[in-house]
Design a binder for these strands. Structure first.
Lengths: 188, 188
DNA sequence: CTCAGCATGTAAAAAGTTACATGATTTA
DNA sequence: TAAATCATGTAACTTTTTACATGCTGAG
């Protein structure tokens, strides 16, 4: 009676999913993540090695020495690993979590009471988000050209919606701040 | 020569910021977070105790036994803690990170190749997000009534923009999936 | 040929989660 | 007055980050 496996931390599924693309070293997994899912999943550089160790230990991944001078381990999915990641991909539960220092700072801005600092923060973020949005909008057609796999284009479209919403919010908020400051200068 | 303090993990600043509102126990800090910043910062229940221990150990927070039967420690900011959190609030850097299992699953959906599962996932999320949006839209006027502190209303408005964007994306994506499935049923 | 940066990884430290425990308080 | 739930916290475990180390490879 094999009890059902305990679910993995969701980052480990992201790791396994990368190996669906092709066998590769841990370092390449990290690089592949940076080029694909880094906007909605990320971790420190060296974490892939810990994940690789865990996943090999628990039988989801197997490693093979690569030939050549430097020691390099090529990782690939075991049948168990493939089964686990495909089952995860098919299950409709999905927990999302946003960690936003910016919103925490806005929430407590009454205590810092420094509207100029907040304005700087928002303007800085506005530029970053506008740049990301432009990049995504420019790259989207390239992904959309891949008719056989429309899914990556969908995640990029999610990014576009996200940044448009963020920009709209920033503009709205900067306008409110401006109004507040003007009222203060007039009345104070 | 006191060297500058190493920055705290950003969750610790959120913790300290809660103590700007009033002195309270670790448990109350957690409750206060759930009622305010939980949509853009969250952690496991018991983590507040680890944070409290660290912050007391490092001199940012002081604790006092509360009177009464059960042992309870009331936490409050030390001058050092207050200085640290105000400085953090005023600094314009802010790192945000989204962890979205949903988008990871969408990105790799070609491998699971189960459009029905993906449709279920999106429809489920659509309901959750629509419910959150409705709740936020209903509550926003209450926060906006607090003219002396407009900032919490701003974070709620951010949530509204976020969920509107998410819903727009989900609808767009469900439409694309429907089109794909129809094409498949016709041609396959 | 040397320097910068890429590729590869390890070890120690820190942060965060899970599981457990239990006193107080409300409610049926 | 028993059961449920709130409030409070600890201990053990797991994950994640930080700091370090070092071979390889291409550019100048």
């Amino acid at each position: 009676m094999s009890r059902p496996e305990k679910p993995l931390p969701s980052g480990d599924y992201a790791f396994l999913a990368m190996l669906l693309l092709a066998p590769m070293s841990a370092y390449q997994v990290k690089k592949a993540m940076q080029g694909s899912v880094s906007h909605f999943y990320s971790a420190a550089h060296s974490q892939v090695y810990q994940q690789a160790n865990r996943l090999v230990r628990d039988g989801y991944v197997r490693e093979k020495e690569a030939p050549g001078g430097r020691r390099t381990r090529i990782l690939s999915l075991t049948p168990k690993g493939r089964r686990a990641v495909l089952e995860w991909l098919r299950s409709p539960e999905a927990e999302d979590q946003l960690y936003s220092e910016l919103l925490v700072k806005v929430f407590f801005a009454a205590y810092s009471d420094d509207p100029a600092a907040m304005q700087t923060m928002l303007e800085r973020r506005r530029e970053e988000s506008a740049a990301m949005l432009a990049e995504y909008e420019q790259f989207l057609p390239v992904l959309e050209a891949a008719k056989d796999n429309p899914y990556p284009a969908m995640t990029m479209s999610a990014g576009i919606h996200f940044y448009r919403g963020e920009l709209a919010w920033i503009d709205e908020t900067l306008a409110k701040l401006g109004a507040t400051k003007r009222r203060r200068s007039v009345s104070g």
